[in-house]
Amino acid sequence: MNIKPLLVASGLIAATALAGCSTVGGTFYTASYASVTDAGYKLPAIPKTKVPSQYLRQIVKYETSEAPGTVIVDTSAKFLYFIMPDGKAMRYGIGVGKQGFEWSGTARIAMKREWPTWTPPAAMIRRRPELAQYRGGMKPGLQNPLGARALYLFRGGHDTGYRLHGTPEWWSIGKAMSSGCIRLLNQDIMDLYNRVDIGAKVIVK
């Protein structure tokens, strides 16, 4: 996907008209949260008016020494940034790990999966025995906890067990509710999935 045209300040109005985007209070909103059919699944529309506006997908100014294509996750602010050229980033609202399940560090995206299978880890099954039925994996679908897409985080060649993934629980964005993984609105993880490359650096802080 070629995202460079979005970065040209003089072209924002034209890009907005073409993409059906809007500018509110000086913030450039790029997100469409309408219902979408993907791989035979019909994702419901996100009720944008019920999601705090700061958590909607948008292009923001973001100065960093990290290279474009890097993902930076700010767990305290509940934002994920996909670094773009020229001091900009695509920002997404996220849900993060609840107390005791937080994770931070630097990793790489080793795998990308569309409509992934979810397999609860053994520790989660011990906490919630009712999940034992999914020990062999929960099939993809609208209620799957990984949502429409998943990006798998590895460090030192080993799976960290953590993911950047979608969620059907749009109301959890901006909150600390997960078991450590970083969750995005399904429409947002689909957008990020199309932008980020295998091997991309991910910084979670």
Rank of each mutant, 00 (worst) to 15 (best):
L18C: 04
R195C: 11
A15R: 12
V8G: 03
L80S: 01
P116R: 12
A150V: 08
E63Q: 14
T106H: 08
L131G: 04
D86N: 14
D191H: 10
T167V: 11
R135N: 09
L131Q: 05
A148S: 15
I3Q: 09
D74L: 06
K61R: 13
Y92E: 00
A67N: 13
G40A: 02
G25D: 11
M1K: 12
Q187A: 14
R149T: 05
A14H: 07
Q58C: 05
A176F: 01
M90N: 03
M90T: 02
S104C: 04
L164Q: 02
R195Q: 14
D159A: 13
A17K: 13
Y162C: 06
P121V: 08
L131S: 04
Q99M: 09
N186G: 10
S53P: 02
G141M: 09
I125R: 06
T27A: 08
V51T: 11
K112L: 11
V73A: 04
T160H: 07
P44N: 08
T27Q: 10
A132H: 03
R195H: 13
A14V: 10
R195Y: 12
A19T: 13
I3R: 11
G93P: 00
V24S: 07
A9N: 13
K88H: 15
I109K: 05
E66P: 00
L185Q: 01
K42A: 14
F154T: 10
A200K: 07
R135L: 11
S178W: 01
A9Q: 14
D197T: 10
S65H: 12
G40Y: 03
R155M: 08
P5Y: 06
R155K: 14
V196W: 06
L43D: 03
G199A: 06
V36L: 13
M177F: 04
P140C: 09
N194W: 06
T160K: 07
I198R: 12
I203A: 03
I182W: 00
I125N: 04
Y62F: 15
Q99S: 15
I173P: 00
P47H: 05
D197M: 10
A200P: 10
L43Y: 13
G166H: 03
A9I: 10
D38L: 12
E130H: 06
A15M: 13
G20L: 09
R126F: 00
W103E: 08
K205I: 06
T23A: 07
Y134F: 15
F101T: 08
I46C: 08
I13P: 00
L18N: 13
A67D: 12
I203S: 02
K50C: 01
T16A: 14
K201S: 10
Q187E: 13
I59K: 00
L164G: 04
G180N: 04
I173L: 05
R149A: 11
L12D: 08
